[in-house]
Design a protein around this nucleic acid. Sequence first.
DNA 1: AATCATAGCAACCGCGTCTCT
DNA 2: AAGAGACGCGGTTGCTATGAT
Length: 285
Amino acid sequence: MMEGKRRMAHDDELRDIKKGPWKVEEDEVLINHVKKYGPRDWSSIRSKGLLRRTGKSCRLRWVNKLRPDLKTGMKFSADEERTVIDLQAQFGNKWAKIATYLQGRTDNDVKNFWSSRQKRLARILHTSTAPSSSKSHKTTKHLQTPPFDFIPSLKATKLEEEFAASSMETVPFGEVVYPSPISAVPVEQQPYVAFPQFPMLPPDYPPLLEGQDFIGRLGAPNFLDDELGHSALGTAQVPIAPSFQASGTSESHDAVDIDSLMDDDFPPIDLFDQIEPLPSPSHWS
DNA sequence: AATCATAGCAACCGCGTCTCT
DNA sequence: AAGAGACGCGGTTGCTATGAT
C-alpha cells in the first residue's frame, strides 16, 4: 500500500504533476483560463504549460471552489437539508443530480453534508445502543436514510395532489402533513418547493415494526438538532405496534409519548438487524 | 495547557460515459 | 465502427479547525 503510493508519487514527479492544496497564483491562472476559453479544455491548461495540474484537478478546483455562484462557507439551511434528504431518498447517492436542485451547491458539498449527517446518525444510534453495542456493529454504509417511499402514504396520489394544491402553507402543529415527492426538475428549470414539515405519521399509517418508526424519523430534517429531534417531533403521539409495546399493556395501538421512546432502552439493541438492505433507486417503482 | 475526538472540507482516485477523430 | 482521450461522478482519504476532557 505504502509502496504503491510512493511509486505513484514518483510517477507524478516524472510527469511533473502537482497535487495537494491550490495556491492563489494557481487559482488566478485557472480563472484566467476560464475567462478566456470557458469552463472546458481542462487538459489544455497543462499541455500549454500554464499549470502543472491535471485537467481533472483543474476542473474539480473550478467546479468546487472557483465557480462564481458558489455558496462557500455557508452551512446548509434547513430547506437545503430537507431537499437533500428528500432527493437522496428519491435518487439515492446521485450527488451531482441532487446538487442541481440546490443553488450554489456542488456535488461535493452535498456528498460531504450527507456523509457528516450519516456519521452523526451512526454515532447517535450507536450511543443509544451502547450497552450491548458489540452485537450490532455495522458500518455507516448501511445507514442510509430510508427513502420516503418507506412511508406508504407517499404513494397515495390523491393525498399528493391535495398537498400540491395546498403548497407550503403553514400547518397547525399536530395536523398531519403529507409529504409530496419532489418533482424531478432541477433548480434552473423550476423553482424548487422544499420538503414540508414532517411532524407526524398519518393517522392511517399501519402499525410499525420494531425499529421502523425511529429510523424513519431519523430521516426528518433537523432531527438531530434540538435535543434529539424533540423540536421536530414536539410531543407527537405515534402509534406503536403491539409487539413493540411493553408487556402487559393494551393490545390496541395506543399512542405513546415520544419522550418514552428516548429512554435508555430505545432504540432496541438489535435495531440494525431489523433493517433490510435498501433497494437501489433503480429498483424503486 | 495539553491531548484527544469529531466535524467539515478539499482534493485525489478509479471507473464509467461521452465525444471526437 | 472502434479506439483514444476528455470529462464527470461517486467513493475515499487526509488535513485543519473546533470542542470536550
